[in-house]
Amino acid sequence: MSGIALSRLAQERKAWRKDHPFGFVAVPTKNPDGTMNLMNWECAIPGKKGTPWEGGLFKLRMLFKDDYPSSPPKCKFEPPLFHPNVYPSGTVCLSILEEDKDWRPAITIKQILLGIQELLNEPNIQDPAQAEAYTIYCQNRVEYEKRVRAQAKKFAPS
């Protein structure tokens, strides 16, 4: 494992614990031996107030490669969400998460999670990743928002 990646992720964890947006979660997972795995984080993004996503808490896994922060983490909703920019596998399609697009090593975990929260309610229809959600979003916004509200209710924190 890269010392650069681990040191950056340790800084990220410290900064997150000191200050993070209300309702968001970002925690490194534990290895079988109980030690912390900084390369694999369990996160959760709350649906934004005043949107059909409100009330939901959407679980996301963030996986970092050894060359982080040169390369972005892979962000994957578990379980996958109904959304035009979420692949059926759950992987998020967002330009700041793509090395050859808008990724920059200075982007923080907090910025990534806030960017994904923004994307939930403002899909990028130029870059669809899920045919069904994309089609319904474009053709029947009322039905799309109904499905999103049902999903938010399903993923409401207990």
Rank of each mutant, 00 (worst) to 15 (best):
I109A: 12
F58R: 04
V142Q: 12
A150T: 12
H20V: 00
A150C: 10
N31P: 07
R147C: 11
P88N: 08
M39F: 13
G90T: 04
P79A: 15
T51C: 13
L81R: 04
P73G: 01
L113S: 10
K65T: 14
A26G: 09
E132Y: 07
Y137M: 11
E145G: 06
A26K: 05
Y144P: 04
V142D: 14
N124M: 04
I4K: 06
E99N: 08
P72R: 06
V148P: 05
P46N: 07
K14T: 07
L9M: 05
C75T: 07
E122R: 11
R141A: 10
T29L: 14
L119M: 10
I45D: 04
P84S: 01
L94A: 04
G50T: 05
M62Q: 04
G50Q: 10
V92E: 00
G34C: 08
G56R: 02
C43H: 01
I136L: 10
C43W: 06
C75A: 10
Q139S: 07
I109F: 08
Y144E: 02
A129L: 00
P157I: 05
P32G: 11
Y134S: 11
D127Y: 12
P72V: 05
G115W: 00
E143N: 12
I109K: 00
C138N: 15
M62P: 04
S95N: 14
E145Y: 12
I45Q: 03
S89N: 06
I112D: 05
M36T: 00
N85H: 01
A133E: 01
P157M: 07
Q130T: 09
P52Y: 11
S89Y: 15
S89R: 05
N37A: 14
R149C: 05
L81T: 04
G115R: 00
H20P: 00
M39A: 07
E99C: 13
L120H: 00
D67I: 05
L120K: 03
C75Q: 01
A133T: 05
P88H: 14
I125K: 04
W103L: 02
A152C: 04
T51R: 00
A26P: 00
V25A: 10
D67T: 10
I45A: 02
T51A: 02
A106I: 08
K49P: 05
K153T: 08
K76Q: 14
A10Y: 00
A15V: 10
A44V: 08
W103Q: 00
Q130V: 05
Q151F: 05
Q117E: 09
D127G: 09
P80Q: 09
I96N: 02
C43F: 06
F24L: 04
V148S: 03
E42H: 07
C75K: 00
E78A: 11
G3E: 12
G23M: 02
F64S: 00
K30P: 09
L6H: 08
Q111N: 13
I125A: 08
S2I: 08
P157S: 12
G55T: 05
L60E: 03
P69N: 01
D66Q: 11
K59S: 12
K48N: 10
Y144Q: 03
F82A: 04
E143G: 09
R141I: 11
A5Q: 13
E143C: 11
E118N: 12
Y87C: 02
Y68C: 05
D102Y: 09
Y87K: 03
S71T: 10
I45P: 07
A15F: 12
E99Y: 14
F64W: 06
D102E: 10
G56W: 01
Q117I: 07
S89K: 11
A131S: 14
P88L: 14
G34I: 06
T35G: 07
Q130D: 03
L97N: 01
R104F: 02
F155T: 05
Q111D: 12
Q130F: 07
M62F: 14
L120E: 02
N31V: 06
L114K: 11
S95L: 04
C43P: 08
K76L: 14
S70Y: 12
N40F: 07
A152N: 09
K74F: 15
G56V: 00
F77W: 01
A129G: 04
M62I: 10
F58D: 06
Y87A: 03
N140M: 05
D67E: 13
K154V: 14
F24C: 08
A5H: 15
T108E: 13
N85G: 01
P52A: 14
N31E: 11
P72I: 01
L9C: 09
Q130A: 12
F77A: 00
F58H: 02
F22V: 04
N140Y: 08
K18H: 08
L120P: 02
D127F: 04
A129H: 04
E118D: 13
I125N: 08
L60V: 09
A131C: 13
D33H: 00
R149Y: 08
A156Y: 08
K30F: 07
P80H: 12
M36I: 09
P79Y: 15
I107S: 13
G56E: 02
W103M: 05
K74D: 15
N121H: 09
E122H: 10
K74V: 15
E143K: 10
L114N: 12
R13I: 03
D100N: 14
S95E: 05
D19M: 08
Y68R: 08
G56K: 06
I107H: 11
E132W: 05
P157Q: 13
C138L: 07
Y144F: 05
I125R: 02
P21D: 04
H20D: 05
A131W: 01
D100C: 04
P88E: 15
W41T: 01
F77S: 02
I136H: 07
W16A: 05
K101P: 08
E143R: 06
D102R: 02
K18M: 07
E99S: 11
K14Q: 04
E54I: 08
A133H: 05
E12I: 02
L81S: 03
R61M: 10
E118V: 12
E122D: 13
T108F: 15
A26W: 09
P46V: 09
T51F: 05
D33N: 07
Q117V: 06
T35F: 00
L114E: 11
A5I: 15
I45L: 06
I45N: 04
L63E: 15
D19S: 04
E118Q: 09
A133S: 11
P88F: 09
K30W: 03
P79V: 14
H20E: 02
L9E: 07
K153W: 06
T51W: 02
F24V: 06
Q126S: 13
R13L: 05
E98P: 11
P73I: 08
E98Q: 02
L119F: 15
V86E: 00
K49A: 13
V86H: 09
